[in-house]
Write a protein that binds this DNA or RNA. Structure first.
Lengths: 304, 304
DNA sequence: TTCATTTATGCTCAAAAAAGATAAATATAG
DNA sequence: CTATATTTATCTTTTTTGAGCATAAATGAA
C-alpha cells in the first residue's frame, strides 16, 4: 500500500471520475486506474462499482473511504505533534521545588505558564536541593527551584538567582527573646539551637554556621530536624531557638515568634536547569525571560 | 512520506539499531539510513539521537513513534473493515416488515441473527407490502416480510414462501355470528363488510374478494380502513363483519370474536429480496437457509 | 447504429529505491 | 593512549517501480 494510492482513492471517491481525479492530481488517467486497481488487489475487494460511464463507491468502498480520510488526518496529526514536541510547545515539563520556599508563588506562576502554552503538562515534585541535584543528574526533572546546590563538576547545571530570603530568629511565643524587636546572634548563646539538617539544605546550614563562626560563637546544636514543619514544632514546644528563612512564615506557625536579625543574613532562592535543556525546559526559560520576572514574584523578604 | 518509511521507523525504534532493523526487514543498512533521513527531512525534526554507537528516540521521536504505530494499526483496521463489509459481516441490514404479520416472530429471529453476526446493524421499518415494493425499487431496504407483492416487471425481486395464515371471520362479541364455531361465507350476506384497504394489502383484498366471487356473493363493503387496528375498532363498535389473517389476534382485540371459516382460505406470508442482494442481505439469506427455518417460526395458523 | 466519453491495458522510459562498497565516527579492549 | 571492531552516513551502480503515451474496449446518449 501507499499514501499516493490512498490519496488517489480519496480524490476519485470525491469527484467520482478517474479522469477528473487525474487532472486534479496533475497526472494521467492511466495512473489513477492503476492506483485503484492496486488498492483493490491488495484489499481483495472492489472499492468502486464502475463502468465506462459511471463510478460509484461500493459499500466496502464507503467504509474504506471514511477510514482513508481518517488515516491521512492521523498522519498530519502525527507530523504536527512531533513538530510541536520539537518546538517545546507540547510535552511534559518536570519541575522540582522546595516546598517551604516556593509554595507561595509557584501556583500562580504555573497557572500563567499554562495559559501561555496549554499543551505543556507541568508536573511538580517536592524535593530538597540535594534531591534536585540528583534528579538533574539522572534526568528526571527539567527545572528546579531551591537554595544554591553543590554541583561539584563541570557546567552541567545552570542557575539564575531569584531572590534573597532574609533569615529570621524563631522562638516560641513565651520565650525570653520573643519580646525583642531585633535579635543579635550573641543573644542566642544561652540557648540550644535547633538546626535544619545539613543533608536536606546544605546552603542554609552553611550560611548559618559561618555566620556564627564570624561572630566567634559555637552554638549548642540541640537537634537537626529534616523538615521545616518539624523544626517549628520543636521550637514551639521547647526553649530551643532556630534560624530560618523568612518564607517559613508561610507555613503553619502557631505559637512561634519570628524576630529579624540585626545583621544582613540571607539565603538565596535560585532556579536551576541543565546545560542541555529539554525542549519544554527551553520554552520555560524563554517564557521566564520575556514574560515573567520571577524576582518580583518572590517577595519573601517583605515583613508580614 | 511512505508506509515503508513508517515501518522502518517503527522497527528501528523497537530494536534501537539501524543495522539490526535492516536484517529484520530483509534489506540493507543503507536503505534504513535513507528511510530515516527522508522521514526526518520531511518532518523537519530529528527522530533519533544517534551516533555510530548508540541510537535513541528523541522526545519528538517518542511521540511520532506512538502515532506511527497507531496509523499502521488504523490501516489494518481499514482493510479489515472493508473486507468484512464485502463479506457481509459488517454493515447495515434494512428490513421492511408488515407489523400485524411479523410482530410476533421478528424480534426473536433478529436477536438470534444478532448473535450470529453481531456487527450487522439491523434496522427495521414497518411498511405495507406496497411500500416494501417501492423501497426495493429505490434500494432503501434489503429484505422484506409481507404478503405477496405485485412486482410487475422482470426478476428484480425474489421471494420465499414462509407460511399460510388462515383467514378468520371477525365480529364483535355480541354479534349474532359470534356464537358459531365455524362460519360460511354465505353467513355474511346479511351484514356489511369492513375490508382492509386494497392499496395497503392488495393480496389479502384480492384473496377475499375472489373467494366471495367463487361463492357468487357480492359483499356490501362498508368501509376500508388502512390499519388492522382501525379495522378491529370498526368491527368492535358496529355490526359489520370482517375477514382478517389469523395473526391479527396478536394485536389488541378486546370485544372482538374470531371464528374459523368452513373453507380453506389463506393469506401467505413471504420473505422478499432483490435479485442482486447487498452483502448483508446475502448473509441474512444464507443464515436463513442453514440456521433458521422461518416456517417453523411463524405458527400463525395455530388457534389461540 | 453511430459517436463521444470513459476506464483498462500494453509499451517505453525516467525516476526512485535498493544494493553494494567505502568512509567516518566512536566505544571498548588491550 | 592506541588499535580494533562495530555502526551510521554517503557515494555509485543496479534494479524496480511508476508515470506518460497510445490504444483498445465498453457504454450511454443522440
Amino acid at each position: 500500500m501507499n499514501f499516493k494510492h490512498l490519496k488517489t482513492f480519496i480524490e476519485v471517491a470525491n469527484c467520482k471520475s478517474f479522469s477528473v481525479a487525474a487532472t486534479r492530481l496533475h497526472t494521467v488517467q492511466s495512473a489513477i486506474s492503476r492506483h485503484i486497481n492496486a488498492l483493490e488487489e491488495e484489499l481483495g475487494i472492489s472499492l468502486f462499482e464502475r463502468n465506462t460511464r459511471h463510478v460509484a463507491l461500493t459499500a466496502s468502498g464507503e467504509v474504506y473511504f471514511a477510514h482513508a480520510k481518517a488515516i491521512l488526518n492521523h498522519c498530519e496529526q502525527a507530523k504536527n505533534d512531533a513538530q510541536l514536541v520539537a518546538q517545546g510547545k507540547l510535552g511534559v515539563l518536570r519541575i522540582g521545588y522546595l516546598s517551604s520556599a516556593c509554595a507561595h508563588f509557584l501556583p500562580s506562576v504555573l497557572r500563567r505558564f499554562n495559559e501561555f502554552v496549554p499543551n505543556i503538562d507541568v508536573k511538580i515534585f517536592e524535593m530538597t536541593a540535594a534531591q534536585q541535584l540528583h534528579a538533574f543528574v539522572e534526568g528526571s526533572i527539567d527545572i528546579g527551584f531551591s537554595r544554591p546546590i553543590d554541583y561539584g563538576y563541570d557546567g552541567l547545571i545552570r542557575h539564575k538567582h531569584l531572590s534573597n530570603d532574609p533569615i529570621y530568629l524563631v522562638v516560641n511565643d513565651s520565650h525570653p527573646l520573643a519580646q525583642k524587636n531585633t535579635a543579635r546572634l550573641t543573644d542566642l548563646t544561652p540557648y540550644s539551637l535547633t538546626l535544619f539538617a545539613r543533608d536536606q539544605a546544605s546552603s542554609l546550614f552553611d550560611t548559618i554556621i559561618s555566620a556564627f563562626h564570624q561572630h566567634e560563637i559555637r552554638p549548642k546544636v540541640h537537634s537537626e530536624p529534616i523538615s521545616m514543619q518539624a523544626l517549628l514544632t520543636q521550637v514551639a514546644s521547647s526553649q530551643t531557638v532556630a534560624l530560618v528563612p523568612g518564607c517559613v512564615r508561610n507555613l503553619q506557625t502557631k505559637q512561634c515568634c519570628f524576630i529579624p536579625l540585626d545583621i544582613p543574613l540571607f539565603t538565596p532562592l535560585e532556579m536551576h536547569w541543565t546545560a542541555s535543556p529539554s525542549a519544554t525546559a527551553k520554552t520555560w526559560l524563554h517564557w521566564c525571560e520575556q514574560d515573567i520576572n520571577l524576582e518580583k514574584e518572590t517577595p519573601s523578604h517583605s515583613p508580614s
